Amino acid sequence: MKPSDEMLDIVDENDEVVGQARRGEATARRLRHRCVSVEVRDAEGRVFVHRRTPVKPVFPSCYDMFVGGVVGAGETYEEAALREAEEELGVTGLPRPEPLFRFLYTSAEHTWWTAVYQVRCESPVRPQAEEVAWHAFWDDARLERRLDGRAWVPDGLEAYRRLRAFRLPP
């Protein structure tokens, strides 16, 4: 099955399911659906950073500090977070990603509810070649320094900004 044929739940502004559509249609018609973004850290606490392949239909060749993707029809955020993390990293047996928060991402072209998670991956990664063109683990300082100099996926950048605010002490 092509990714564009994958069935997604279409949701309203409150993240309640109101229908279903194929992924290609949801993207083309800007139908609100669900996505997951998983921050992956290695044993040293560094963040997995990667560049998407140029054939990705959304945000091709952009950099991201999250792995993730769409939540399939009938799938939970939790199921999608683990599935997407293991698929994109090319590993099995990850611990269940820890949920942090959700937010509604909107732009002129896209709209989706994003659930943000974190997970530690202590296994060697073998990123999925169809998804990941380049990857590395960066410490937080290096990631911060590189935010302005590269083309980052806009929803990942928004999730990262919200994650930084989420982690600030009260």
Rank of each mutant, 00 (worst) to 15 (best):
A43H: 09
V40G: 06
P60W: 12
V55G: 13
P54L: 09
P60M: 11
V40W: 01
Q20L: 01
V17C: 11
N14Y: 03
R23M: 12
G19K: 06
E16W: 00
A28K: 13
G19Q: 07
S37P: 05
H50N: 08
T53R: 04
A26V: 12
S61Q: 12
L31P: 04
P57L: 10
E25Q: 11
L31Y: 07
R32D: 02
R23D: 04
H33V: 00
N14K: 07
V38I: 15
A21H: 06
V49A: 08
S61R: 12
R34C: 02
R41E: 06
R32G: 04
T27M: 11
E16H: 03
E39F: 00
R29K: 15
V18W: 07
F59N: 15
R46Y: 04
G19Y: 04
P60G: 10
E25F: 01
E25T: 10
A21K: 07
A26G: 05
R23S: 14
E16C: 01
R46C: 01
R29T: 14
D15Q: 10
C35Q: 13
E25S: 06
V17T: 14
R30Y: 13
A43P: 00
A28N: 11
H50W: 13
S61T: 13
G19P: 03
R52H: 13
A26L: 08
A28Y: 08
K56R: 12
V36R: 01
R23Y: 13
C35D: 14
V17F: 02
R46Q: 07
G19W: 07
G24Y: 02
V58C: 06
E16S: 04
V17M: 13
R23C: 13
R46M: 01
R22G: 08
V18P: 00
V36C: 01
F48P: 01
E44F: 12
F59H: 15
S61N: 15
H33F: 12
P54A: 09
R29H: 15
F59Y: 15
V55N: 12
E16V: 02
P60H: 08
A28V: 03
V55L: 13
R34F: 03
K56A: 13
E39Y: 00
A21M: 07
S37T: 04
E16T: 00
V40R: 02
R51A: 06
R29I: 12
F48L: 05
R41S: 08
V36Y: 01
T53A: 09
